[in-house]
Simulated scan of single mutants.
Amino acid sequence: MQRRKRLPTGELGELEKVGSIPTTEEQVAELGMQLTQEKLSNIQKDVIINGLGSQVAQMKIEIMAMKGGGA
């Protein structure tokens, strides 16, 4: 929450933050950062999964070669 204090001249002063409730802008910024972190995390998972898939495919090829290219 924000408020304006009355100055000694009777005019309203600058906005100041009161309490610990974040503003809408602060909430949006925080959610944006969290979304970015989640996206990066998902990209890292995808890279790991693709790498493991490649290793499995390579191992299958090696096993087939050891068995004589068997069908």
Rank of each mutant, 00 (worst) to 15 (best):
Ser41Pro: 03
Gln55Ser: 11
Glu38Trp: 04
Gly53Val: 13
Met64Arg: 07
Thr36Gln: 05
Thr24Phe: 07
Thr9Ile: 03
Arg4Cys: 01
Gln55Gly: 06
Ile49Gly: 00
Ile63Lys: 10
Met66Pro: 01
Glu25Met: 05
Val28Gln: 14
Ala65Leu: 09
Gln44Val: 14
Leu12Ile: 04
Val28Thr: 13
Thr24Ala: 05
Gly13Phe: 01
Gly70Phe: 11
Lys5Val: 03
Gly19Ala: 01
Leu15Lys: 13
Ser20Gly: 08
Ser20His: 09
Gln58Cys: 02
Val18Phe: 06
Ser41Lys: 10
Met33Cys: 11
Ser20Asn: 12
Met66Trp: 06
Glu16Arg: 10
Ser20Gln: 10
Ser54Tyr: 08
Ile48Val: 14
Ile48Trp: 01
Met64Thr: 10
Gly51Trp: 01
Glu25Ala: 13
Ala57Lys: 06
Val47Ile: 15
Gly53Asn: 15
Lys39Pro: 04
Met1Leu: 12
Ala71Gln: 13
Thr23His: 11
Ala57Asp: 13
Glu38Gln: 14
Leu35Tyr: 10
Gly13Lys: 01
Glu38Cys: 10
Lys45Phe: 02
Gln58Ile: 00
Thr24Lys: 09
Lys39Arg: 12
Val47Ser: 06
Thr24Cys: 03
Leu15Met: 07
Val28Ile: 15
Lys60Gly: 06
Glu25Leu: 07
Ile49Ser: 00
Gly19Trp: 00
Gln2Trp: 06
Gly51Gln: 08
Thr24Pro: 05
Leu12Arg: 04
Gln44Thr: 15
Gln55Met: 08
Arg4Lys: 11
Gly10Gln: 07
Arg4Thr: 00
Val28Gly: 13
Arg3Ile: 02
Gln55His: 06
Ile61Asp: 03
Ser41Phe: 05
Val56Trp: 04
Pro22Ser: 03
Ile63Arg: 11
Pro22Tyr: 02
Lys5Phe: 02
Lys17Val: 07
Lys17Glu: 14
Gly19Val: 01
Ser41Gly: 14
Leu52Thr: 11
Leu35His: 05
Gly68Ile: 01
Asp46Met: 06
Gln55Arg: 12
Ala29Glu: 15
Gly68Ser: 02
Thr24Ser: 04
Ala29Ser: 09
Leu35Glu: 06
Thr24Val: 11
Ser54Glu: 14
Arg4Trp: 00
Arg6Ile: 14
Pro8Glu: 06
Thr23Ala: 10
Glu30Ser: 14
Gly70Val: 07
Ala29Phe: 03
